[in-house]
Design a binder for these strands. Structure first.
Lengths: 294, 294
DNA sequence: GTTCCGCATGAATCGATAG
DNA sequence: ACTATCGATTCATGCGGAA
């Protein structure tokens, strides 16, 4: 059985096009907008102090089109200006809450191979924020889709059931991990944390993807099911749409610049559709954990 | 040659005692204040909505006593309230900038062993903020003191060291790799990034430290030289002072609660002084980095 | 002198129940 | 309605003692 997956690519200003979308129609919004003062030549360079003012009308539309059970993941990082971290992200969070967004969580994307460089007053920046916003406190989350391999501790720990594990049940001291220790036998995956640890993609330079495919893949698996709809209002070279299509999710990708739009369209055209999900238990980003433990 | 290192421990309210300190007299402030609504049983628990108001008078004094070339590292993390991340840290950063602080950088402390648990709407929280504030844009930073090894050799070496038993035997005090230090001489080293990857201190000890010794060790090496002065206004069980003393830095530690003060005093009394710095290039927590670059 | 194994918690969070 | 307490859930680490 094949699903009929729609992958819409729109070459337009996102604020303009978002207004055409219906209320409560999107399951996941996932985007990496142009950072303040970046991409000056392309986006006209949104100034730092104007960034919040620029973004709020967009986030207002996003709030409208998102389903009450949906999630908005915003990838963003402050720029350093005259030796100081800019504060527009903090201000944006505070203002978006006033719009009605719930700021549920802040994931950290730890970039394994961050940009090289050396400065006298700071080290290389190897992490970015992945802010999770929600429309209501009851949102869909499919945690089992992103479980990761358990650490090696389990092998030795569970080899023998200590009697204390049983004692802890009745002692009521602490939290009682021992109570269900038998549940752990044979368990080989655990739930991840809120730190994502993966490398940036550096292989292909013909398109500058904001993030590697692992990031949208993880969030799409975590917050949507097949045939749900994913939206990326700043599509760039199209990574979100490519991954959504591969995972059998409908998607809408909006990109203003023709150069990027062309790249995205080309990538989508040659990408596979309706590909059965082979493996949804082993996200790439926790490889390192086992590396260290192993 | 031995330096005469002063390690002052003060059992007092920090705001009260800070007023007695001279202007521009501290090289590094490093602290982990009680988080909002946390440690209610011991510190009384500062309410979330009053946290900024509570902290600002303290940060104002800290700004006064810090040297223009000095640095303030603040370890803090938001609490979840009714399914949402609280925003008091964002508000604190914005207010401290109004006081005159520069928000230079945000380091991430990625905790390897974060608290267990499972909830339907979020994963375990495995990171905390280490906010860097400065009084001026020209501050002292000794980057060479915290360089980490790189290369295939380091990679295999560190894998061995990640074995708990070996780490324990060779670095009982946490100062480095002890006798193995000679192995590192002549090896290539690289500057670390702004993500720190280490575990919380073990719980089997008789004191509960806010952070492991590696954290103050790294920042003390990075932002001070020998005979400089380190201040911790929320000393807790004394980790900052212990490490400062071991690294031949003067220090002032302020702790309100007699129980914690007693623990801190005991740890300082039995700790070594004027110990020559054997190894200032190998913090434990950046094992991961060599994995990445190597 | 190593390696192995048992053990005790962690700046947690949610939902239900009780006052 | 609103707050306080309590049970349930979960994973990795370092230490101490034994092999």
């Amino acid at each position: 059985m094949y699903l009929d997956i729609r992958t819409e690519l729109i070459n337009d200003d996102c604020l303009n096009y978002l207004k055409k979308l219906e209320n409560n129609s999107i399951d996941l919004i996932l985007t990496s907008p142009p950072y303040a003062d970046q991409r000056k030549s392309t986006y006209g360079g949104v100034k730092t102090d104007e960034y919040v003012k620029w973004f709020l009308p967009i986030s207002k539309e996003l709030l409208r089109v998102l389903k009450p059970t949906g999630t908005f993941i915003l990838n963003i990082k402050e720029k350093v200006i005259e030796g100081e971290r800019s504060t527009y992200v903090m201000e944006l969070i505070l203002e978006m809450r006033k719009q009605g967004w719930f700021w549920t969580e802040e994931f950290i994307w730890h970039k394994k191979n961050c940009h090289p460089g050396k400065w006298s007053n700071r080290f290389r920046d190897s992490w970015e924020r992945l802010l999770q916003f929600n429309k209501s406190k009851k949102f869909n989350m499919y945690q089992d889709a992103v479980k990761v391999p358990v650490g090696d501790w389990a092998k030795s720990r569970l080899k023998t059931l200590s009697n204390n594990d049983k004692v802890r049940t009745s002692s009521a001291v602490g939290s009682g991990f021992g109570k269900n220790v038998s549940n752990w036998i044979g368990r080989d995956t655990v739930y991840p944390t809120n730190v994502l640890h993966l490398a940036t993609e550096s292989s292909n330079k013909n398109h500058s993807a904001a993030f590697p495919e692992s990031i949208p893949e993880w969030f799409i698996k975590l917050f949507t099911q097949e045939a749900d709809t994913v939206l990326d209002p700043f599509l760039g070279s199209g990574t979100t749409s490519v991954v959504a299509k591969r995972l059998n999710r409908h998607s809408i990708g909006i990109e203003l610049l023709p150069e990027y739009f062309t790249i995205a369209k080309h990538r989508i055209d040659k990408s596979e559709t309706n590909k059965p999900v082979i493996d949804n238990t082993l996200p790439l980003f926790n490889i390192e954990l086992s590396d260290i433990n192993g």
